[in-house]
Computed example of a mutant assay.
Amino acid sequence: MNRLIRTLSVTALFSSAFSATAEVAIIVNPGAAKSPSQAEVANIFLVKDKSLSGIDQKDWNPIKDKFYSTITNKNEAQLKSYWSGLVFTGKGQPLPSVVDDAAVVAKVASDAGAIGYVDSAAVNDSVKVLFTVP
């Protein structure tokens, strides 16, 4: 019994470590005219560059957290403050958002001017991966 508990604990530890290390894939439509760099992606998602339409994920989740903390160097509180400032001054609105990875993939696949981020496991042949964030 003790051995079973230890085995289950180790399995749980490895599976939680695996899920915490999911890669974020930055995706565009395969027909997109532009392949932005990481700095350009940050500017697109902060609405400083309007060459592509960023598709955001609605709720704060580990993929969204990793994307924003790595690409824009902003956490959830900083991002909310950033958007509040833009909305208050009339200089911008938050990006359109969708429910989950599958919805981001579908939106990007159907719009040549869209860019999004998803768990790399959600990527399929309908979109092109620009780069991944480990």
Rank of each mutant, 00 (worst) to 15 (best):
A12H: 00
V108G: 01
S19F: 08
I27A: 12
K128C: 08
D100M: 02
A33L: 13
D56K: 07
I27G: 13
S81P: 07
N124E: 09
L130G: 04
S69L: 07
A122C: 08
L95M: 08
V108L: 09
L79Q: 03
A112T: 11
I115W: 11
L8G: 14
Q57N: 01
P62L: 05
S9I: 05
F88H: 10
A122T: 00
L4C: 05
L4R: 14
A112V: 10
S51R: 07
D125V: 01
Q38K: 15
A20P: 11
K58E: 11
A77R: 11
I26L: 10
L4P: 06
A25S: 14
A121C: 00
N73F: 08
F14C: 15
P62D: 09
A109T: 04
E40R: 05
S110K: 08
Y117G: 06
S19D: 01
V10W: 09
R3N: 13
A12D: 01
F131D: 05
V99H: 09
D119F: 10
D49C: 07
V133S: 03
F131W: 07
I71D: 01
A109P: 13
A77N: 13
T11E: 10
D101L: 05
T72A: 15
D59K: 13
T7Q: 14
A77G: 06
I5S: 13
A12M: 11
N61S: 12
A112R: 12
A20Q: 12
A109M: 09
K64H: 07
I26P: 10
D65L: 05
L79M: 10
S84H: 06
Q93F: 11
D49K: 06
D100S: 07
K48T: 00
A102P: 08
L86W: 03
K66S: 13
T70G: 06
D56L: 07
G31E: 14
V123P: 10
K128M: 08
V123M: 09
V129D: 05
F45A: 02
V24T: 14
K107L: 02
P94K: 07
G113M: 00
I55E: 03
D125M: 04
I5C: 10
I26C: 08
N75D: 15
F88V: 04
R6L: 15
L130N: 03
V99S: 13
T70I: 01
V118T: 10
G31I: 00
S84D: 12
V123A: 09
P62Q: 03
L46G: 05
K107S: 13
S53A: 14
F88D: 14
T70N: 11
A22R: 14
Q57H: 04
L13Y: 12
S110M: 00
A33E: 15
S84P: 01
L52E: 03
V127F: 12
A17R: 01
G116Y: 03
K128L: 09
T89H: 05
K74T: 08
E40F: 06
V108F: 09
F18N: 11
V99G: 02
T21P: 00
K66H: 12
I26Q: 07
V118D: 12
D119E: 14
V123T: 02
F18L: 15
F67N: 03
V104C: 07
S97G: 06
N43V: 00
A39W: 04
A12S: 09
Q93R: 14
G85F: 04
V99F: 08
S120G: 10
K34D: 04
A106G: 05
T132K: 15
S126F: 07
P30S: 12
N29W: 02
V10Y: 11
K64A: 09
R6W: 13
A103L: 06
T72R: 07
T70M: 04
